[in-house]
Design a binder for these strands. Sequence first.
DNA 1: TCGAGGACCGGATCAATGGTCCGGTACTCG
DNA 2: CGAGTACCGGACCATTGATCCGGTCCTCGA
Lengths: 259, 259
Amino acid sequence: MLGTKHSGSPGDVWLRPPARAAREAPPLSRDRIVAEAIALLDEEGADRLTMRRLAERLGTGSTTLYWHVKTKNDVLDLALDAIFAAVEIPRADGQDWRAGIAALISGWRAVLLEHPWSAALLGRPMLGPNVLARSEFLYATLLGAGVTGPHLTAAAYGLSNYVIGSALMQATWTAGGEQATRAAAQDRFRADRERYPVLATHGPLAADSDWDSSFALGLTWLLDGIHATVGASMPACATDEASVSAARHARRGRGSSGE
Amino acid sequence: MLGTKHSGSPGDVWLRPPARAAREAPPLSRDRIVAEAIALLDEEGADRLTMRRLAERLGTGSTTLYWHVKTKNDVLDLALDAIFAAVEIPRADGQDWRAGIAALISGWRAVLLEHPWSAALLGRPMLGPNVLARSEFLYATLLGAGVTGPHLTAAAYGLSNYVIGSALMQATWTAGGEQATRAAAQDRFRADRERYPVLATHGPLAADSDWDSSFALGLTWLLDGIHATVGASMPACATDEASVSAARHARRGRGSSGE
DNA sequence: TCGAGGACCGGATCAATGGTCCGGTACTCG
DNA sequence: CGAGTACCGGACCATTGATCCGGTCCTCGA
Protein backbone atom coordinates (compact mmCIF):
# COMPACT_ATOMS: atom_id res chain seq x y z
CA MET A 1 0.00 0.00 0.00
CA LEU A 2 2.74 2.36 0.81
CA GLY A 3 4.25 2.06 -2.60
CA THR A 4 0.91 2.11 -4.18
CA LYS A 5 0.22 4.62 -6.87
CA HIS A 6 -3.13 6.00 -6.05
CA SER A 7 -3.34 8.39 -8.93
CA GLY A 8 -4.35 11.82 -7.75
CA SER A 9 -6.05 13.43 -10.60
CA PRO A 10 -3.20 15.52 -12.04
CA GLY A 11 -0.02 13.66 -11.11
CA ASP A 12 1.32 12.84 -7.71
CA VAL A 13 1.46 15.42 -4.98
CA TRP A 14 5.16 14.95 -4.46
CA LEU A 15 5.90 15.43 -8.05
CA ARG A 16 3.90 18.57 -8.23
CA PRO A 17 5.64 21.88 -7.45
CA PRO A 18 4.99 22.84 -3.84
CA ALA A 19 2.17 25.19 -4.48
CA ARG A 20 3.47 28.69 -5.05
CA ALA A 21 7.12 27.99 -4.40
CA ALA A 22 7.69 27.37 -8.07
CA ARG A 23 6.98 30.96 -8.97
CA GLU A 24 9.53 32.80 -6.94
CA ALA A 25 9.18 35.89 -9.04
CA PRO A 26 5.99 37.90 -9.09
CA PRO A 27 3.56 35.73 -10.99
CA LEU A 28 4.36 37.20 -14.37
CA SER A 29 3.69 40.79 -15.01
CA ARG A 30 3.48 42.78 -18.15
CA ASP A 31 6.75 44.39 -17.15
CA ARG A 32 8.54 41.08 -16.79
CA ILE A 33 7.32 40.05 -20.22
CA VAL A 34 8.51 43.26 -21.79
CA ALA A 35 11.86 43.12 -20.05
CA GLU A 36 12.43 39.55 -21.16
CA ALA A 37 11.33 40.42 -24.66
CA ILE A 38 13.93 43.16 -24.82
CA ALA A 39 16.59 40.78 -23.59
CA LEU A 40 15.58 38.23 -26.19
CA LEU A 41 15.55 40.80 -28.93
CA ASP A 42 18.95 42.08 -27.92
CA GLU A 43 20.42 38.62 -27.93
CA GLU A 44 18.84 37.08 -30.98
CA GLY A 45 17.30 39.79 -33.10
CA ALA A 46 13.84 40.71 -34.17
CA ASP A 47 12.91 37.71 -36.26
CA ARG A 48 13.71 35.28 -33.48
CA LEU A 49 11.16 36.74 -31.15
CA THR A 50 8.37 34.21 -30.84
CA MET A 51 5.68 34.03 -28.26
CA ARG A 52 6.67 30.46 -27.52
CA ARG A 53 10.31 31.36 -27.19
CA LEU A 54 9.52 34.28 -24.98
CA ALA A 55 7.30 32.14 -22.81
CA GLU A 56 9.96 29.51 -22.54
CA ARG A 57 12.49 32.03 -21.33
CA LEU A 58 9.99 33.17 -18.76
CA GLY A 59 9.42 29.61 -17.63
CA THR A 60 5.78 29.66 -18.54
CA GLY A 61 3.42 28.43 -21.17
CA SER A 62 3.15 30.36 -24.36
CA THR A 63 -0.53 30.91 -24.10
CA THR A 64 -0.19 32.42 -20.69
CA LEU A 65 1.36 35.49 -22.20
CA TYR A 66 -1.90 36.34 -23.84
CA TRP A 67 -3.45 36.90 -20.49
CA HIS A 68 -1.17 39.86 -19.90
CA VAL A 69 -0.81 41.04 -23.44
CA LYS A 70 -3.28 41.12 -26.26
CA THR A 71 -1.07 40.44 -29.23
CA LYS A 72 2.54 40.09 -30.16
CA ASN A 73 2.42 43.57 -31.55
CA ASP A 74 1.68 44.82 -28.09
CA VAL A 75 4.87 43.26 -26.87
CA LEU A 76 6.81 44.96 -29.63
CA ASP A 77 5.21 48.32 -29.01
CA LEU A 78 5.83 48.08 -25.30
CA ALA A 79 9.42 46.97 -25.82
CA LEU A 80 10.05 49.77 -28.26
CA ASP A 81 8.79 52.38 -25.89
CA ALA A 82 10.54 50.85 -22.92
CA ILE A 83 14.03 51.21 -24.28
CA PHE A 84 13.59 54.94 -24.65
CA ALA A 85 13.39 55.27 -20.91
CA ALA A 86 17.18 55.11 -21.07
CA VAL A 87 17.31 58.37 -22.97
CA GLU A 88 17.68 60.92 -20.27
CA ILE A 89 15.83 64.15 -20.74
CA PRO A 90 18.19 67.07 -20.30
CA ARG A 91 17.33 69.68 -17.74
CA ALA A 92 15.30 72.42 -19.32
CA ASP A 93 17.76 75.20 -19.91
CA GLY A 94 16.59 78.35 -21.55
CA GLN A 95 20.12 79.44 -22.36
CA ASP A 96 21.74 76.62 -24.25
CA TRP A 97 18.95 75.00 -26.12
CA ARG A 98 21.31 73.59 -28.72
CA ALA A 99 23.15 71.55 -26.17
CA GLY A 100 19.94 70.18 -24.77
CA ILE A 101 18.60 69.16 -28.13
CA ALA A 102 21.88 67.71 -29.26
CA ALA A 103 22.05 65.65 -26.11
CA LEU A 104 18.52 64.37 -26.54
CA ILE A 105 19.00 63.47 -30.16
CA SER A 106 22.30 61.78 -29.51
CA GLY A 107 20.86 59.83 -26.65
CA TRP A 108 18.01 58.81 -28.88
CA ARG A 109 20.42 57.57 -31.46
CA ALA A 110 22.54 55.76 -28.89
CA VAL A 111 19.53 53.80 -27.69
CA LEU A 112 18.50 52.89 -31.19
CA LEU A 113 21.97 51.60 -31.92
CA GLU A 114 22.22 49.70 -28.69
CA HIS A 115 19.09 47.81 -29.64
CA PRO A 116 19.47 47.31 -33.36
CA TRP A 117 16.18 45.49 -33.66
CA SER A 118 14.42 48.70 -32.75
CA ALA A 119 15.30 50.29 -36.05
CA ALA A 120 13.10 47.85 -37.88
CA LEU A 121 10.19 48.73 -35.65
CA LEU A 122 10.33 52.45 -36.23
CA GLY A 123 7.66 52.15 -38.88
CA ARG A 124 4.88 51.96 -36.33
CA PRO A 125 3.18 54.72 -34.44
CA MET A 126 5.15 55.53 -31.34
CA LEU A 127 2.75 56.77 -28.73
CA GLY A 128 4.21 55.32 -25.57
CA PRO A 129 4.80 57.54 -22.57
CA ASN A 130 8.57 57.52 -22.87
CA VAL A 131 8.53 58.57 -26.49
CA LEU A 132 5.92 61.21 -25.89
CA ALA A 133 7.77 62.68 -22.94
CA ARG A 134 10.88 63.10 -25.04
CA SER A 135 8.98 64.53 -27.94
CA GLU A 136 7.43 66.96 -25.54
CA PHE A 137 10.85 68.07 -24.43
CA LEU A 138 11.95 68.52 -28.00
CA TYR A 139 9.01 70.67 -28.92
CA ALA A 140 9.15 72.64 -25.70
CA THR A 141 12.83 73.37 -26.06
CA LEU A 142 12.50 74.49 -29.63
CA LEU A 143 9.54 76.62 -28.75
CA GLY A 144 11.48 78.15 -25.90
CA ALA A 145 14.29 78.94 -28.29
CA GLY A 146 11.97 80.99 -30.41
CA VAL A 147 11.20 78.48 -33.13
CA THR A 148 7.56 78.84 -33.98
CA GLY A 149 4.87 77.98 -36.48
CA PRO A 150 5.90 75.99 -39.51
CA HIS A 151 9.50 76.28 -38.46
CA LEU A 152 8.74 74.46 -35.25
CA THR A 153 7.11 71.59 -37.07
CA ALA A 154 9.86 71.43 -39.60
CA ALA A 155 12.56 71.52 -36.96
CA ALA A 156 11.07 68.76 -34.86
CA TYR A 157 10.42 66.69 -37.94
CA GLY A 158 13.81 67.24 -39.39
CA LEU A 159 15.58 66.25 -36.23
CA SER A 160 13.45 63.19 -35.51
CA ASN A 161 13.53 61.96 -39.05
CA TYR A 162 17.22 62.45 -39.27
CA VAL A 163 17.88 60.33 -36.20
CA ILE A 164 15.47 57.70 -37.30
CA GLY A 165 16.91 57.44 -40.75
CA SER A 166 20.47 57.43 -39.52
CA ALA A 167 19.88 54.76 -36.95
CA LEU A 168 17.96 52.64 -39.40
CA MET A 169 20.71 52.89 -41.96
CA GLN A 170 23.50 52.18 -39.56
CA ALA A 171 21.70 49.31 -37.92
CA THR A 172 21.14 47.84 -41.35
CA TRP A 173 24.78 47.88 -42.25
CA THR A 174 26.46 47.04 -38.99
CA ALA A 175 24.45 45.12 -36.43
CA GLY A 176 21.61 43.84 -38.57
CA GLY A 177 23.54 42.78 -41.60
CA GLU A 178 26.51 40.75 -40.56
CA GLN A 179 29.90 41.48 -41.93
CA ALA A 180 29.08 39.05 -44.67
CA THR A 181 26.56 41.41 -46.17
CA ARG A 182 28.93 44.28 -45.92
CA ALA A 183 31.77 42.40 -47.49
CA ALA A 184 29.51 41.23 -50.27
CA ALA A 185 28.45 44.78 -50.90
CA GLN A 186 32.05 45.86 -50.99
CA ASP A 187 32.78 43.19 -53.55
CA ARG A 188 29.79 44.26 -55.57
CA PHE A 189 31.09 47.79 -55.72
CA ARG A 190 34.49 46.67 -56.76
CA ALA A 191 33.15 44.32 -59.37
CA ASP A 192 31.02 47.01 -60.97
CA ARG A 193 33.71 49.58 -60.67
CA GLU A 194 33.13 51.04 -64.09
CA ARG A 195 29.43 51.25 -63.52
CA TYR A 196 29.68 52.92 -60.12
CA PRO A 197 33.07 54.59 -60.11
CA VAL A 198 32.39 57.12 -57.40
CA LEU A 199 30.62 54.69 -55.13
CA ALA A 200 33.47 52.26 -55.44
CA THR A 201 36.03 54.68 -54.09
CA HIS A 202 34.08 57.17 -52.02
CA GLY A 203 31.08 55.04 -51.20
CA PRO A 204 29.55 54.43 -47.82
CA LEU A 205 31.89 51.54 -47.22
CA ALA A 206 34.99 53.55 -47.88
CA ALA A 207 37.70 53.54 -45.30
CA ASP A 208 37.15 57.03 -44.04
CA SER A 209 33.48 56.59 -43.33
CA ASP A 210 32.80 57.23 -39.69
CA TRP A 211 29.22 56.88 -38.63
CA ASP A 212 29.51 58.96 -35.52
CA SER A 213 31.19 61.97 -36.98
CA SER A 214 29.02 61.88 -40.07
CA PHE A 215 25.99 61.92 -37.86
CA ALA A 216 27.35 64.77 -35.78
CA LEU A 217 28.07 66.78 -38.89
CA GLY A 218 24.60 66.40 -40.27
CA LEU A 219 23.12 67.24 -36.91
CA THR A 220 25.15 70.41 -36.86
CA TRP A 221 23.83 71.39 -40.24
CA LEU A 222 20.27 70.89 -39.11
CA LEU A 223 20.82 72.82 -35.90
CA ASP A 224 22.46 75.61 -37.82
CA GLY A 225 19.52 75.80 -40.14
CA ILE A 226 17.07 75.85 -37.27
CA HIS A 227 19.17 78.40 -35.50
CA ALA A 228 19.11 80.65 -38.50
CA THR A 229 15.34 80.73 -38.58
CA VAL A 230 15.04 82.29 -35.17
CA GLY A 231 16.88 85.33 -36.41
CA ALA A 232 19.65 85.06 -33.86
CA SER A 233 22.86 86.87 -34.59
CA MET A 234 25.28 84.01 -34.31
CA PRO A 235 26.85 82.79 -37.52
CA ALA A 236 25.15 79.86 -39.08
CA CYS A 237 28.04 77.46 -39.22
CA ALA A 238 29.94 78.02 -36.04
CA THR A 239 32.14 75.57 -34.28
CA ASP A 240 29.67 73.52 -32.43
CA GLU A 241 31.05 71.91 -29.35
CA ALA A 242 27.68 70.55 -28.37
CA SER A 243 27.21 68.15 -31.19
CA VAL A 244 30.82 67.11 -31.13
CA SER A 245 30.53 65.99 -27.57
CA ALA A 246 27.25 64.47 -28.53
CA ALA A 247 28.95 62.22 -31.01
CA ARG A 248 31.44 61.27 -28.41
CA HIS A 249 28.64 60.38 -26.08
CA ALA A 250 26.96 58.25 -28.69
CA ARG A 251 30.05 56.23 -29.38
CA ARG A 252 30.69 55.56 -25.72
CA GLY A 253 28.90 53.05 -23.57
CA ARG A 254 27.80 49.88 -25.31
CA GLY A 255 29.20 47.92 -22.40
CA SER A 256 26.96 48.92 -19.55
CA SER A 257 23.45 49.62 -20.57
CA GLY A 258 22.38 51.38 -17.44
CA GLU A 259 18.75 50.62 -17.04
CA MET B 1 -16.24 11.57 -88.48
CA LEU B 2 -16.35 15.21 -87.98
CA GLY B 3 -18.08 14.96 -84.65
CA THR B 4 -16.11 11.97 -83.56
CA LYS B 5 -14.31 12.04 -80.27
CA HIS B 6 -11.03 10.35 -80.74
CA SER B 7 -9.74 10.79 -77.25
CA GLY B 8 -6.37 12.38 -77.07
CA SER B 9 -4.59 11.11 -74.06
CA PRO B 10 -5.29 13.84 -71.49
CA GLY B 11 -8.75 15.10 -72.31
CA ASP B 12 -10.00 16.38 -75.59
CA VAL B 13 -7.95 18.72 -77.66
CA TRP B 14 -10.70 21.27 -77.79
CA LEU B 15 -11.14 21.23 -74.12
CA ARG B 16 -7.48 21.53 -73.53
CA PRO B 17 -5.94 24.95 -73.69
CA PRO B 18 -4.56 25.38 -77.19
CA ALA B 19 -1.05 24.57 -76.28
CA ARG B 20 0.66 27.79 -75.37
CA ALA B 21 -2.33 30.00 -75.89
CA ALA B 22 -3.37 29.60 -72.28
CA ARG B 23 -0.38 31.51 -71.18
CA GLU B 24 -0.88 34.59 -73.21
CA ALA B 25 1.78 36.41 -71.30
CA PRO B 26 5.34 35.19 -71.32
CA PRO B 27 5.22 32.08 -69.20
CA LEU B 28 5.85 33.85 -65.94
CA SER B 29 8.99 35.80 -65.60
CA ARG B 30 10.72 37.26 -62.64
CA ASP B 31 9.65 40.64 -63.91
CA ARG B 32 6.00 39.72 -64.03
CA ILE B 33 6.21 38.41 -60.49
CA VAL B 34 7.82 41.57 -59.25
CA ALA B 35 5.36 43.79 -61.08
CA GLU B 36 2.43 41.92 -59.67
CA ALA B 37 3.97 41.99 -56.22
CA ILE B 38 4.22 45.76 -56.42
CA ALA B 39 0.62 45.99 -57.49
CA LEU B 40 -0.45 43.77 -54.65
CA LEU B 41 1.60 45.72 -52.16
CA ASP B 42 0.19 48.98 -53.39
CA GLU B 43 -3.35 47.75 -53.10
CA GLU B 44 -3.29 45.82 -49.88
CA GLY B 45 -0.19 46.70 -47.96
CA ALA B 46 2.90 44.88 -46.86
CA ASP B 47 1.43 42.35 -44.47
CA ARG B 48 -1.03 41.07 -47.03
CA LEU B 49 1.67 39.96 -49.41
CA THR B 50 1.67 36.20 -49.40
CA MET B 51 3.24 33.87 -51.82
CA ARG B 52 -0.07 32.12 -52.29
CA ARG B 53 -1.91 35.37 -52.82
CA LEU B 54 0.68 36.55 -55.25
CA ALA B 55 0.51 33.31 -57.14
CA GLU B 56 -3.25 33.45 -57.25
CA ARG B 57 -3.16 36.91 -58.78
CA LEU B 58 -0.75 35.62 -61.37
CA GLY B 59 -3.03 32.71 -62.13
CA THR B 60 -0.47 30.15 -61.14
CA GLY B 61 0.34 27.82 -58.32
CA SER B 62 2.09 29.20 -55.32
CA THR B 63 4.98 26.84 -55.52
CA THR B 64 5.70 27.80 -59.06
CA LEU B 65 6.97 31.15 -57.88
CA TYR B 66 9.89 29.45 -56.25
CA TRP B 67 11.17 28.44 -59.60
CA HIS B 68 11.78 32.06 -60.51
CA VAL B 69 12.57 33.40 -57.09
CA LYS B 70 14.40 31.86 -54.20
CA THR B 71 12.54 33.28 -51.25
CA LYS B 72 9.89 35.79 -50.42
CA ASN B 73 12.60 38.16 -49.34
CA ASP B 74 13.87 38.15 -52.86
CA VAL B 75 10.51 39.35 -54.04
CA LEU B 76 10.58 42.15 -51.54
CA ASP B 77 14.10 43.17 -52.41
CA LEU B 78 13.34 43.13 -56.10
CA ALA B 79 10.13 45.08 -55.62
CA LEU B 80 11.87 47.63 -53.47
CA ASP B 81 14.54 48.24 -56.02
CA ALA B 82 12.11 48.24 -58.89
CA ILE B 83 10.07 51.17 -57.69
CA PHE B 84 13.14 53.39 -57.67
CA ALA B 85 13.36 53.12 -61.40
CA ALA B 86 10.70 55.80 -61.38
CA VAL B 87 13.09 58.27 -59.80
CA GLU B 88 14.60 60.01 -62.73
CA ILE B 89 18.23 60.88 -62.47
CA PRO B 90 18.78 64.53 -63.28
CA ARG B 91 21.18 65.42 -66.00
CA ALA B 92 24.63 65.90 -64.61
CA ASP B 93 25.07 69.62 -64.36
CA GLY B 94 28.25 71.02 -62.95
CA GLN B 95 26.71 74.40 -62.38
CA ASP B 96 23.62 73.91 -60.35
CA TRP B 97 24.35 70.93 -58.19
CA ARG B 98 21.81 71.94 -55.60
CA ALA B 99 18.96 71.71 -58.04
CA GLY B 100 20.05 68.29 -59.16
CA ILE B 101 20.34 66.93 -55.68
CA ALA B 102 17.11 68.50 -54.56
CA ALA B 103 15.35 66.93 -57.52
CA LEU B 104 16.81 63.53 -56.83
CA ILE B 105 15.97 63.61 -53.15
CA SER B 106 12.47 64.86 -53.80
CA GLY B 107 11.89 62.18 -56.39
CA TRP B 108 13.16 59.62 -53.97
CA ARG B 109 10.72 60.80 -51.38
CA ALA B 110 7.86 60.88 -53.84
CA VAL B 111 8.40 57.26 -54.76
CA LEU B 112 8.58 56.18 -51.14
CA LEU B 113 5.33 57.94 -50.41
CA GLU B 114 3.62 56.54 -53.47
CA HIS B 115 4.37 53.06 -52.25
CA PRO B 116 3.90 53.35 -48.51
CA TRP B 117 4.82 49.75 -47.90
CA SER B 118 8.32 50.52 -49.05
CA ALA B 119 9.04 52.52 -45.94
CA ALA B 120 8.79 49.43 -43.82
CA LEU B 121 11.32 47.68 -46.03
CA LEU B 122 13.99 50.33 -45.78
CA GLY B 123 15.67 48.39 -43.02
CA ARG B 124 17.32 46.02 -45.44
CA PRO B 125 20.43 46.44 -47.51
CA MET B 126 19.56 48.17 -50.75
CA LEU B 127 21.97 47.00 -53.37
CA GLY B 128 19.79 46.82 -56.43
CA PRO B 129 20.88 48.48 -59.65
CA ASN B 130 18.34 51.27 -59.47
CA VAL B 131 19.30 52.26 -55.98
CA LEU B 132 22.98 52.06 -56.73
CA ALA B 133 22.67 54.16 -59.85
CA ARG B 134 20.97 56.91 -57.90
CA SER B 135 23.46 56.73 -55.08
CA GLU B 136 26.17 57.00 -57.65
CA PHE B 137 24.63 60.17 -58.98
CA LEU B 138 24.37 61.59 -55.49
CA TYR B 139 27.98 60.94 -54.66
CA ALA B 140 29.21 62.09 -58.04
CA THR B 141 27.28 65.32 -57.90
CA LEU B 142 28.47 66.13 -54.42
CA LEU B 143 32.01 65.32 -55.39
CA GLY B 144 31.71 67.53 -58.43
CA ALA B 145 30.50 70.33 -56.20
CA GLY B 146 33.66 70.16 -54.21
CA VAL B 147 32.44 68.18 -51.25
CA THR B 148 35.20 65.79 -50.30
CA GLY B 149 36.47 63.46 -47.64
CA PRO B 150 34.42 63.14 -44.49
CA HIS B 151 32.17 65.90 -45.68
CA LEU B 152 31.20 63.84 -48.68
CA THR B 153 30.28 60.87 -46.57
CA ALA B 154 28.40 63.02 -44.12
CA ALA B 155 26.55 64.83 -46.87
CA ALA B 156 25.42 61.70 -48.65
CA TYR B 157 24.45 60.08 -45.39
CA GLY B 158 22.65 63.10 -44.12
CA LEU B 159 20.58 63.44 -47.24
CA SER B 160 19.74 59.76 -47.59
CA ASN B 161 18.92 59.31 -43.96
CA TYR B 162 16.80 62.39 -43.93
CA VAL B 163 14.66 61.17 -46.81
CA ILE B 164 14.39 57.73 -45.38
CA GLY B 165 13.38 58.93 -41.97
CA SER B 166 10.94 61.43 -43.35
CA ALA B 167 9.25 58.97 -45.64
CA LEU B 168 9.10 56.36 -42.94
CA MET B 169 7.53 58.78 -40.52
CA GLN B 170 5.03 60.14 -42.96
CA ALA B 171 4.05 56.74 -44.27
CA THR B 172 3.48 55.64 -40.70
CA TRP B 173 1.07 58.44 -39.95
CA THR B 174 -0.78 58.79 -43.19
CA ALA B 175 -1.01 55.84 -45.51
CA GLY B 176 0.10 53.05 -43.23
CA GLY B 177 -1.89 53.96 -40.17
CA GLU B 178 -5.40 54.77 -41.18
CA GLN B 179 -7.08 57.87 -40.01
CA ALA B 180 -8.21 55.86 -37.04
CA THR B 181 -4.71 55.75 -35.64
CA ARG B 182 -4.22 59.39 -36.22
CA ALA B 183 -7.48 60.33 -34.63
CA ALA B 184 -6.70 58.15 -31.65
CA ALA B 185 -3.35 59.84 -31.30
CA GLN B 186 -4.99 63.20 -31.47
CA ASP B 187 -7.34 62.17 -28.72
CA ARG B 188 -4.48 60.88 -26.67
CA PHE B 189 -2.73 64.21 -26.88
CA ARG B 190 -5.82 66.06 -25.89
CA ALA B 191 -6.57 63.74 -23.03
CA ASP B 192 -3.08 64.11 -21.58
CA ARG B 193 -3.03 67.79 -22.22
CA GLU B 194 -1.42 68.66 -18.92
CA ARG B 195 1.22 66.03 -19.36
CA TYR B 196 2.15 67.02 -22.90
CA PRO B 197 1.08 70.62 -23.19
CA VAL B 198 3.30 71.57 -26.07
CA LEU B 199 2.64 68.44 -28.05
CA ALA B 200 -1.08 68.95 -27.65
CA THR B 201 -1.06 72.33 -29.30
CA HIS B 202 2.02 72.37 -31.51
CA GLY B 203 2.47 68.66 -32.00
CA PRO B 204 2.88 66.81 -35.25
CA LEU B 205 -0.84 66.58 -35.67
CA ALA B 206 -1.43 70.26 -35.29
CA ALA B 207 -3.38 72.03 -37.97
CA ASP B 208 -0.48 73.85 -39.53
CA SER B 209 1.66 70.77 -40.03
CA ASP B 210 2.44 70.39 -43.67
CA TRP B 211 4.57 67.41 -44.56
CA ASP B 212 5.77 68.75 -47.86
CA SER B 213 6.92 72.15 -46.75
CA SER B 214 8.44 70.76 -43.57
CA PHE B 215 10.44 68.36 -45.64
CA ALA B 216 11.53 71.08 -48.01
CA LEU B 217 12.64 73.23 -45.15
CA GLY B 218 14.78 70.56 -43.59
CA LEU B 219 16.26 69.74 -46.96
CA THR B 220 17.23 73.36 -47.37
CA TRP B 221 18.97 73.33 -44.03
CA LEU B 222 20.97 70.28 -44.99
CA LEU B 223 21.91 71.69 -48.36
CA ASP B 224 22.94 74.95 -46.78
CA GLY B 225 25.15 73.11 -44.37
CA ILE B 226 26.72 71.08 -47.11
CA HIS B 227 27.17 74.16 -49.19
CA ALA B 228 29.00 75.88 -46.37
CA THR B 229 31.57 73.11 -46.14
CA VAL B 230 32.85 73.54 -49.66
CA GLY B 231 34.61 76.68 -48.55
CA ALA B 232 32.78 78.92 -50.90
CA SER B 233 32.70 82.52 -49.88
CA MET B 234 29.00 82.92 -50.31
CA PRO B 235 26.80 82.98 -47.27
CA ALA B 236 25.40 79.62 -46.42
CA CYS B 237 22.04 80.29 -47.94
CA ALA B 238 22.04 80.11 -51.68
CA THR B 239 19.51 80.62 -54.40
CA ASP B 240 17.44 77.53 -54.61
CA GLU B 241 14.36 77.69 -56.72
CA ALA B 242 11.68 75.63 -55.08
CA SER B 243 12.32 74.62 -51.57
CA VAL B 244 13.75 77.69 -49.95
CA SER B 245 11.20 80.45 -49.76
CA ALA B 246 10.63 80.50 -46.05
CA ALA B 247 14.01 80.00 -44.53
CA ARG B 248 15.70 82.65 -46.54
CA HIS B 249 14.76 86.02 -45.25
CA ALA B 250 15.16 84.95 -41.65
CA ARG B 251 18.88 84.79 -42.02
CA ARG B 252 19.15 87.55 -44.54
CA GLY B 253 19.83 90.77 -42.66
CA ARG B 254 22.77 90.45 -40.34
CA GLY B 255 24.63 87.96 -42.45
CA SER B 256 27.77 90.04 -42.08
CA SER B 257 28.53 88.82 -38.61
CA GLY B 258 31.22 86.20 -38.41
CA GLU B 259 31.65 84.26 -41.62
C1' DT C 1 -14.96 27.11 8.26
C1' DC C 2 -16.29 27.08 3.81
C1' DG C 3 -17.35 27.91 -0.71
C1' DA C 4 -18.04 31.13 -4.52
C1' DG C 5 -15.71 34.00 -7.52
C1' DG C 6 -11.88 35.81 -9.75
C1' DA C 7 -6.92 36.07 -11.01
C1' DC C 8 -3.80 33.35 -13.33
C1' DC C 9 -1.98 29.37 -15.96
C1' DG C 10 -1.39 25.99 -19.90
C1' DG C 11 -2.43 21.72 -23.01
C1' DA C 12 -4.77 20.90 -27.19
C1' DT C 13 -5.92 22.88 -31.23
C1' DC C 14 -6.77 25.93 -35.49
C1' DA C 15 -5.66 28.58 -39.60
C1' DA C 16 -2.20 30.88 -42.19
C1' DT C 17 2.20 30.95 -43.99
C1' DG C 18 7.07 30.11 -45.99
C1' DG C 19 9.23 26.59 -48.13
C1' DT C 20 10.43 21.67 -50.04
C1' DC C 21 9.62 17.14 -52.58
C1' DC C 22 8.56 15.00 -56.33
C1' DG C 23 6.10 13.89 -60.15
C1' DG C 24 4.11 15.86 -64.13
C1' DT C 25 3.77 18.55 -68.98
C1' DA C 26 5.32 20.80 -73.09
C1' DC C 27 8.81 22.37 -75.89
C1' DT C 28 13.44 21.82 -78.11
C1' DC C 29 17.41 19.87 -80.04
C1' DG C 30 20.18 16.35 -81.84
C1' DC D 1 11.86 10.01 -82.23
C1' DG D 2 13.88 10.00 -77.83
C1' DA D 3 16.27 12.46 -74.30
C1' DG D 4 16.99 16.60 -72.02
C1' DT D 5 15.31 20.84 -70.04
C1' DA D 6 12.49 24.70 -68.72
C1' DC D 7 8.47 25.17 -66.29
C1' DC D 8 4.44 24.01 -63.40
C1' DG D 9 1.71 22.51 -59.24
C1' DG D 10 -0.52 19.16 -55.71
C1' DA D 11 0.69 17.11 -51.42
C1' DC D 12 3.13 17.92 -47.60
C1' DC D 13 5.88 19.82 -43.45
C1' DA D 14 7.36 22.92 -39.63
C1' DT D 15 6.60 27.22 -37.52
C1' DT D 16 3.93 30.75 -35.71
C1' DG D 17 0.16 33.81 -33.83
C1' DA D 18 -3.88 33.21 -31.57
C1' DT D 19 -8.10 30.96 -29.25
C1' DC D 20 -10.87 27.51 -26.40
C1' DC D 21 -11.63 25.61 -22.43
C1' DG D 22 -10.61 23.45 -18.43
C1' DG D 23 -7.65 23.58 -14.62
C1' DT D 24 -5.18 25.57 -10.01
C1' DC D 25 -4.61 28.79 -6.38
C1' DC D 26 -5.84 32.81 -3.65
C1' DT D 27 -9.06 36.01 -1.49
C1' DC D 28 -12.89 37.47 0.85
C1' DG D 29 -17.32 37.61 2.76
C1' DA D 30 -21.00 34.95 5.36
